[in-house]
């Protein structure tokens, strides 16, 4: 549990904008490619299912080109320097919840998310925040699952306490 407030070096806005333009162009390409490879059924429709995808792909491509020009003209706003440590903690917490939910149940998985988010905002230690998160999540689970019959995945903890 080391402090890892990795700070992102300030990138030049232009280069990021070129990446955005490239991503937009790729999305446009994927849409066009996927649409072109779509099955040709459903011929009775006057304006087929391919018209809108092609139009949107074309528009995204135009926007990609426009973004390049905007980047060349330094039209992108200055960005604050970012800390990536917190982002990694929170994204990690969400990923952990997603992957563990089915196995450990709502309370434990969501408790981990809670603790990881708190850690992202600089609050620890985890041995304290994880139990707090699990207790809180269990209360939430109990209210919504038992009180309101919502199907939230139950795990060993939920079964243990209600068993």
């Amino acid at each position: 549990m080391t402090e890892n407030n990795t700070s992102g070096t300030k990138r030049r806005p232009d280069r990021a904008a070129f990446v955005i333009a490239a991503v937009l162009a790729i999305i446009a390409g994927v849409i066009a490619w996927n649409t072109a490879n779509m099955g040709g059924a459903g011929s009775y429709s006057r304006l087929g299912p391919t018209a809108f995808p092609y139009a949107i792909a074309a528009a995204l491509f135009v926007l990609a080109v426009w973004t390049v020009f905007a980047a060349l003209r330094h039209d992108f706003p200055e960005r604050e320097p970012q800390q990536f440590g917190p982002v990694i903690w929170i994204v990690g917490g969400l990923a952990a919840q997603m992957l563990l939910l089915k196995f450990v149940g709502f309370s434990i998985a969501t408790g981990l998310l809670f603790a990881a988010t708190a850690r992202g905002f600089g609050r620890g230690p985890l041995w304290m925040t994880i139990p707090i998160g699990i207790v809180l999540s269990f209360v939430v689970w109990f209210i919504f699952s038992k009180g309101l019959q919502l199907s939230l995945p139950a795990g060993p903890l939920e079964r243990f306490i209600l068993g």
Binding site: I108, P156, E158, F160, G163
Partner: peptide, 20 residues
Amino acid sequence: MKHFVLASILGGLLALPAHA
């Protein structure tokens, strides 16, 4: 913490048949 988790997993397994 570890014990707590272990205990809950064990408890969960034991409780499972009763709640099927």
